[in-house]
Amino acid sequence: MSTSTTLEAPNTGTWDGGNEPMKASYGKLMMWFFLLSDAFTFGAFLITYGLARHAHKPYTGEAEAFTFSTEWWPIPEKVFNAFPGFHGVDLPLAFVALMTMILILSSVTMVLAVEAGHRMDKNDVQKWLLWTILFGATFLGCQAWEWSHFIAGTDQGMLLADGTRVFGANLTVNQYGPPLFADLFFFITGFHGTHVFTGWILLLIAFISTVNGVYQKRGHYEMVEKIGLYWHFVDLVWVFVFTFFYLI
């Protein structure tokens, strides 16, 4: 307690960290700039997807007659049309819709936790952090299912010129289209999933600290706010992944 008080003592000198030109604490400012750099990383990933897509032949035939081929870039809703428990049923984008809803919900519970922190309401912070942890775990579980389905492939697979069939996808073989499509799926959703997982660990730590009263003693819940910024950013990235990978 005494040590934390010393650490939290405000510096008042102008050149001593006493003035905050952007009226945000050092930690929050650094989180913002980290997120900016992360936005560049994700931007580069999604733009690479755009580059690869423009460099490949588009599918020009009727959507109903679409078949998987390494010749052309696949239509996303023909690739992502499976739902757990509905084997063989064509449900385009339904599972992604569910995942999107879960992530938006987790963002809402996160911002509610931050709001509760402003009011120094320990019980509410605990409650909303727990909801966020739950939704985060659900999202990660959904992504694990999505990956395993993508890797295992469909019943029909893809018919090759020599009469054999390939099923599923890895970094070199891809039943859904050009190998690059699968590579970018793994890299983009994998990198996003890693972010969700990291955020989830941070949320767990914040939850344990809240329960132990660490932030209450410190006098503010800024740590929850900073983790919140990160969590919302992960949601923001998903909004873009959803549009550029699944919708367009």
Partner: peptide
């Protein structure tokens, strides 16, 4: 947040827009 903070985050993102224009043209 303050306008300074907002713009220092938003303005650098113009570089992403440029990268997008350049690489999509390159792909085509």
């Amino acid at each position: 947040e303050t306008k300074t903070l907002m713009w220092s985050i938003l303005i650098p993102l113009a570089l992403v827009v440029w990268l997008m224009v350049a690489l999509l043209a390159e792909g085509s």
